[in-house]
Design a binder for these strands. Structure first.
Lengths: 158, 158
DNA sequence: TCTGAAAATGGACCTTT
DNA sequence: AAAGGTCCATTTTCAGA
């Protein structure tokens, strides 16, 4: 189906993760390919789902969402349909940037961007208190976003 | 310095968070603005740091990093220089996508993308066991990435 | 807001392996 | 066949009037 990534693909992925606006000609110069070849590869990487999407990263504090909050959630029941319903409610909530279903002491880890504590408290009621499949949750308020990104390491290899 | 965002800015930000490749002409059609106006606004938003950067989101499993791991870390000492050193070591580690310094039971929350458990164990040694300012850490392995993004809600308001 | 130049993208076509 | 390169048309960006 999708051929394995070669060294060119990997370099391109590293570059466009750092800056998706780099012109294809510039990318070509960096990896030693013609712009046409770069163009073809990028299109293929997108078609194959290696590149999921292109996005602008917005500074939360500049758009009045200065508060980052991490929430651990434990559920009552791990029945599939219960879990699915919960996942959907998390997906739908715009303030939830990320939701991971995890093993261990907790079942979900959420990352939220909110306007203030009032908004978080309101969400807390909607998402957790109103949901009787939530056994307990723990709030960790972020004082500093030390590193924030979605970059995946792409080794030069092969 | 930077004038507050108006309704046009907000709509544009929503759009380009969803798809940063949307042509400015198309954006203009959606928000009811000429392409030139869109162009000026996007440039200004970037200059003002509202748009931090443009990036391609890569599927971790397609580049051999199928494992997402959340780690909670508690430190021994919260002395500034100790903390700074720790933050820098987290920033430098390419497998660490995100690092939040938080209040509460834990001091740091990390999100990692790794190739496999062996790689995680190795990182664990470098980052935690080799650092005597790490009191303890807890690993939460993600079984499913329910929602992953950095989108910040930008209300239509103003 | 409109117009036009410059830049970037992406297809056609030919060549190499 | 699969992938690269060159060339060219189209699209997009972006500045000046």
């Amino acid at each position: 189906m999708s051929p394995p990534l070669d060294a060119f693909d990997r370099k391109l992925l590293m570059e466009i993760q750092r800056d998706a606006q780099t012109p294809q000609a510039e990318l070509g110069a960096r990896v030693n390919l013609s712009t046409a070849a770069v163009n073809r590869r990028l299109r293929r990487l997108a078609e194959d789902g290696v590149i999921e999407r292109y996005t602008a990263v917005v500074a939360p504090d500049k758009v009045d969402h200065p508060l980052t909050i991490v929430v651990n959630v434990e559920v009552e029941s791990e029945q599939i349909d219960q879990l699915d319903a919960m996942k959907r409610s998390f997906e739908r909530c715009p303030q939830i940037q990320q939701c991971y279903y995890v093993t261990g002491e907790w079942d979900f880890v959420l990352i939220l961007a909110v306007r203030n504590m009032d908004q978080y408290n309101a969400l807390t009621r909607e998402l957790f208190f109103a949901n009787n499949n939530v056994k307990r949750f723990k709030t960790l308020v972020s004082m500093s976003r030390v590193k924030v990104g979605l970059e995946v390491p792409v080794e030069p290899g092969e």
